[in-house]
């Protein structure tokens, strides 16, 4: 079916020719960009600098975990905190495509600065097939602009290299296992991160709410799968909805926000079925969100839509 050894050997040879000078790689610590970082670092060694950007929309504890993981990988890396820059750019922005494009451009501006400082002309990205397919092109409709493809500004001065362009997530995982990369089984997490899990404007406050809710969803579903009460889903998270509803909390009227829980099964992200999570597990998630986050959220709903017609993320 898919031969990881053959793929890695061929790509490393190709990359040596493709990148004659220095390069930086945009790496979130997820499976795609980490695989790309390891492959390119095998191809060009110390001429590669791995850059992780904290855009302010990362999950709970994520930046610290990525820092440790890069350290263990023994690659040349740098963490950049650009959260102020990203939050400022998102002020007043609510339209999903606008959000994705602004984030895509911000990333590139950060990478341009870092590339200049490192004297690099090449930008490596962990782009995989669904990223360019869904971003659209001459013949294909744009479903959503992935930040690393449809979100790239026209006036960028870096040459983009994308060694994983023709692979899907399941194939990237096979390569990751072959390379012994510890994040091989990590769930997908989109580049625009929590900014697209807040429907409406991604303010610091709203991102904080969805960050907490995402952490609870991850903890509970991972616990349930460890206890063999269910298979660990392909992707699972919370979305903060821009609608309020009436509730009653301790005999007091509440008028709080709504969290949608999303969990899907997929192989490649191009089609997906919603997860049949046991009711008890959903109930536990609902209970934890509404009690631990009671000042913010008084209602939790579960998304029962497949892809198509929905997409996995809400934006």
């Amino acid at each position: 079916m898919f031969d990881a050894e053959e793929f890695v050997n061929e790509k490393i040879e190709e990359l040596k020719g493709q990148i004659p000078g220095r390069a930086i790689i945009a790496c979130s610590g997820g499976v795609d960009s980490t695989v790309a970082a390891v492959m390119v670092s095998r191809a060009i060694g110390d001429k590669l600098l791995t850059i992780y950007v904290n855009n302010g929309f990362m999950r709970k504890g994520e930046t610290e975990d990525v820092d440790l993981m890069f350290g263990r990988l023994g690659i040349n890396y740098k963490l950049v905190d650009a959260s102020d820059e990203f939050f400022n750019a998102m002020k007043g922005v609510t339209e999903p495509e606008a959000k994705r494009k602004i984030i895509g451009e911000r990333f590139i501006r950060v990478f341009e600065r870092e590339a200049k400082a490192y004297h690099a002309e090449y930008l490596v990205q962990g782009t995989i097939a669904p990223d360019w397919i869904e971003s659209g092109d001459g013949v294909r409709d744009t479903i959503k602009s992935h930040h690393n493809v449809g979100g790239l500004p026209k006036d960028m001065d870096l040459t983009v290299v994308e060694p994983l362009r023709d692979l899907y997530k399941d194939e990237v995982r096979i390569v990751a296992r072959y390379l012994g990369i510890e994040v091989s089984e990590r769930q997908p997490f989109p580049g625009p991160a929590l900014a697209i899990r807040v429907i409406g404007e991604a303010t610091r406050e709203a991102v904080e709410v969805v960050r907490e809710a995402c952490a609870i969803v991850e903890e509970e579903l991972e616990k349930a799968s460890k206890q063999k009460r269910m298979e660990r889903p392909w992707q699972y998270f919370a979305v903060l909805l821009p609608c309020q509803s009436v509730g009653v909390q301790g005999d007091r009227r509440a008028y709080g926000r709504t969290i949608a829980v999303r969990s899907v099964e997929s192989i490649d992200g191009m089609s997906a079925a919603y997860s049949k999570v046991p009711y008890e597990v959903l109930e536990r998630i609902s209970f934890r969100i509404t009690s631990e986050m009671k000042a913010n959220v008084n209602r939790v709903v579960y998304d029962i839509t497949n892809k198509p017609p929905a997409t996995i993320e809400w934006e």
Binding site: I133, E134, V139, R140, D141, D166, D268, M270, S271
Partner: peptide, 10 residues
């Protein structure tokens, strides 16, 4: 033959 489908590459 690519007619622009989301699943052409599949």
């Amino acid at each position: 033959i690519d007619n622009g489908g989301q699943w052409t590459h599949r």
